[in-house]
Amino acid sequence: MKQSWVVVGLLAGTMMGALAGCQNMEAASPWVDLGNQVAKNAGYDTDSRLSRAIKDTLNASTDRASAGLSQQGAFNLRLPASAQPVVNSLRQYGFGSYVDQLELAMNRGAEQAAVEAAPVFKQAIAGMTVNDALGIIRGGDTAATSYFRGQTESTLRSRFQPIVEANLQKTGFYEQYKSMLAVYENLPIANKPSMDVERYVLDSSMTALFTRIGEEEALIRKDPVARGSVLIGQVFGEG
């Protein structure tokens, strides 16, 4: 009898892995739950396996996102729309080089900060619970990333901000920013807008990271073994 349960558990676990990759996850959910329960009755810790697969997916996605965005030229940040009156005025008066130097410093700072984002992400991933991970199984192509962002963005932002600031300091951003503002303030322009370029760089960097992580997750789900691992392939295998 025990041997029969083992066979049933293995078959259910295999069916669960296949169905987890199907597009119609609502229809598959009862089978996923059944597969989990039968496999656990047979002595297999399927919850733990699914949780590891989700964490492996996020780890792979964040590693690739951080590595990709750390390459020179990965970002293409320009001063925000609110700063366009400043940009246009400086260029009009022949001070466009101040804008160019500032934008270059912004992009170099964002690239350098991306390198240091990986360990911050890994710590957040390690803190995910089994229930958190299991809920992601039923989601769409970027369900893990969406959950990850919703649960961790505020904490990551507070930790990421000093990283961005430190790297902006290294690239000479603040010196360039002060120089640009000093020139701008002396121009004969009324109703000058205020600029929070530092916050803009932080927001843009965070958005770019999560967008890239989502793209990597979607690729892993599409080809889980090639871009992930055998374990991830068992969970996100094609249905």
Rank of each mutant, 00 (worst) to 15 (best):
A42N: 14
S229V: 09
I232F: 08
K192N: 08
G228T: 12
L69K: 09
A83T: 12
E116K: 13
R78E: 08
P188T: 06
K170D: 04
F95T: 02
V6Y: 11
Y147V: 05
V197Y: 13
E165W: 07
F173L: 09
V183P: 02
L134R: 11
N131V: 04
G228V: 13
E215A: 15
L58W: 01
N88K: 13
P85T: 00
E217L: 04
E26T: 13
S229D: 12
L219Y: 11
Q23S: 12
I189L: 15
K122T: 06
R157W: 04
S70A: 15
Y174P: 05
F236Q: 10
G172H: 09
Q92I: 02
E165T: 15
V8I: 05
S205Q: 09
A20H: 02
K40H: 07
F236L: 14
S66P: 03
A114V: 02
G94I: 06
D33I: 13
G94D: 03
G228E: 14
T145R: 13
Q176G: 06
A113V: 04
P119M: 09
P30I: 03
I213Q: 09
E216N: 15
D47K: 06
L10H: 07
M106F: 11
S205D: 08
Q101P: 01
Q92P: 00
L181P: 00
V32M: 15
Q176P: 03
G94A: 04
I163L: 15
G139P: 01
Q84H: 03
S29M: 10
A117K: 12
G127W: 02
E175V: 07
Y174K: 12
A60E: 08
S179T: 11
Q234F: 12
A27C: 00
D56I: 02
S97N: 09
V115D: 05
T155P: 00
G214M: 12
I189V: 10
G17H: 13
M25V: 11
S205R: 11
A143G: 08
K2A: 14
T57M: 15
S205V: 09
S204Y: 02
R212V: 09
G35N: 03
L10C: 03
W31T: 06
G13D: 06
S4M: 09
L10P: 00
G127I: 02
L34D: 03
M206Q: 08
S48Q: 12
Q101K: 15
